[in-house]
């Protein structure tokens, strides 16, 4: 898998097409695994999409007492294996981003697996393929780096100028230290 998911929260228009698409994905039992939520409903109608970060060392797997959460060769963190999951919900509390969901009826945890059946063949996940405002994108690594740089240029567009004391705040993340360019 040479592509990556790229989220831009500000671009979300709150149409929830990604959630509808997620429900349609195979093996999801018509339950969405991603989130679209309000940043602050009393302030504005701004929403943000939220997916699993597919951590390299996932806290959800670390706190699972049954060792049920597995990671594929491509680095996708899968939902808990149904035969192992004992339904304790530790993963939902361990996850720093609040991603895993729990189905009390059938006693299993389910989480975003980046539509593993699609992404393992470099097809965009359901949510990214339907997002009308490109808040969720499934793009090449190089394209992502370009977008990242443009994102820092946005500061200049908005009239925020770097000064001697804070110029490093304006440099894109991973500047000069990113080594894992194969992914």
């Amino acid at each position: 898998m040479n592509k990556i998911m790229y989220l831009e929260f500000e671009r979300c228009i709150g149409c929830r097409a990604c959630q509808a698409a997620c429900r349609e994905c195979g093996d999801h039992d018509a339950k969405e695994r991603n989130y679209v939520e309000y940043v602050d409903f009393t302030e504005s109608r701004q929403t943000f999409p939220m997916l699993c970060m597919q951590c390299k060392d996932p806290a959800c797997a670390r706190v699972c007492p049954a060792n049920a959460i597995q990671i594929t060769d491509e680095g996708v963190v899968l939902s808990a294996m149904e035969e192992k999951c004992i339904g304790c919900r530790n993963c939902t509390f361990g996850c720093p981003f609040g991603i895993p969901k729990f189905d009390f009826e059938s006693n299993k945890m389910y989480k975003c697996d980046m539509c593993y059946d699609r992404t393992k063949d470099d097809i965009a996940p359901m949510c990214a393929s339907v997002c009308p405002s490109e808040a969720i994108r499934f793009i090449d690594f190089d394209e992502m780096q370009q977008l990242r740089r443009r994102r820092t240029q946005m500061n200049l567009v908005e009239g925020k100028k770097p000064q001697e004391g804070n110029k490093w705040e304006y440099v894109p993340e991973f500047f000069g230290v990113y080594t894992d360019s194969q992914r």
Binding site: V171, P172, F175
Partner: peptide, 11 residues
């Protein structure tokens, strides 16, 4: 500025 750092990798 729009924050592009996650605090793990220091630019």
């Amino acid at each position: 500025p729009v924050n592009t750092n996650n605090g793990i990798h220091i630019s």
